[in-house]
Design a protein around this nucleic acid. Structure first.
Lengths: 205, 205
DNA sequence: ATGACCTATTGACAGTGTCAATTTGTTACC
DNA sequence: GGTAACAAATTGACACTGTCAATAGGTCAT
């Protein structure tokens, strides 16, 4: 009565988003069309227009949900992580990497500026939260040191995101070396630690 | 006689690719459709099928051309660059960054695994060339030192690519700090130099 | 119960990718 | 030189897609 089966369908909006998520997993962004989503829910082809005026707004709403999922996972990991900023930064990074590996289609959608409206407040606020999450740990790490915080944060986030993206494309598949595929992320983060340890000293150069 | 005006149109294939490139700049990947490209060239809607059996193969061929452009630009920069591996690596990185800033739609297409066939030999070989281009400089830099070459190469490429990608999405727009927007790339590369200087020492840890 | 309002359906429109059948143009051979 | 073989481009069709207007349905307050 309160939420279910109150109108024609119940709450179609959440059902549409759930169907959209499934279609995204199955067939990527291309697979989540307005009509396809409606079909999956079992509703007429123009029904979604009442809740999402566009395919763009539908995808944007879905993306917002996905970002919330990532953020929730990060919070979970940070809650059980020790106070050491290094391992907390590593926790954030691995949260992203795990998500990208587990759900490549979802992760790819997050950064599609052509089909998702990142200018919307729904997106901007969520991006800011993620960014501040990273900065928080770096600030703790950098307390008292002369450090270019934003460059480090941007560099770290860029490396993590770029790695997931390039890996998904298949760019790093045949690179044979001493580090096995699954350990590469850890090696990357460990490498970046070098920056965190030494970069502050070089700033005055 | 040899190449131009030999058949109905001349060489349609290159004309289609040129039109596709223009449409990509104007409207992104979505804008470059089979029919739209044909229309732009002034040919019937199914004409492209003789040269590209798919929209996918059309986009893949276009992407191959774009990668060649980037590679040519890198070669040009490396030719006039000094022998210092640091500045050569910086040259490669800035080549990518400049390209991404100048042609965001082209750059975005390069990494779209859903519409471009990166498994094709046309793509694989080109990716390998780029990767080896980076590794060459790192190898010179690392000669005699105990260094995990691939992790550094992957980390560098990931950071550069991720920065371009996230910047295009608009992720770093309101980050106010001491570094102005245009100098951020240089700061990132300078920061990464810290890794190159120190990482080899930490490997035994 | 009546009217207002939100929600969903239906039908249409222009546009897309892809395929089969056809026509056109070019080349090579006898 | 005429003709057959072949490649290239056109045409028309099919099943899709997103979006919009008009319609019908269900729910609520008055």
């Amino acid at each position: 009565m309160t939420k279910n089966k109150q109108f024609h369908h119940g709450d179609l909006k959440t059902a549409l988003l759930r169907a959209a998520r499934d279609l995204l997993d199955e067939g990527g962004e291309t697979g989540v069309g307005v009509r396809a989503v409606a079909r999956k829910v079992g509703v007429s082809h123009a029904a979604p227009v009442n809740h999402f005026k566009d395919r763009r707004t539908l995808l944007t709403a879905l993306t917002a949900e996905l970002i919330d999922d990532v953020r929730a996972d990060i919070d979970l990991r940070l809650k059980v992580a020790p106070k050491d900023p290094f391992v907390r930064i590593e926790a954030i990074a691995t949260a992203f990497i795990d998500y990208g590996v587990r759900h490549p289609n979802r992760y790819a959608l997050l950064w599609r500026y052509d089909v998702v409206d990142h200018e919307s407040e729904m997106m901007r606020s969520r991006s800011d939260v993620i960014y501040e999450l990273i900065c928080n740990e770096i600030d703790i790490l950098a307390s008292g040191r002369n450090i270019d915080r934003d460059t480090i944060a941007i560099g770290l986030w860029s490396m993590v995101h770029g790695y997931i993206d390039l890996k998904t494309v298949g760019m790093f598949e045949d690179r044979n070396d001493s580090v096995t595929g699954d350990e590469r992320p850890k090696a990357l983060i460990k490498m970046f630690r070098t920056v965190l340890d030494n970069y502050g000293l070089n700033l005055s150069k």
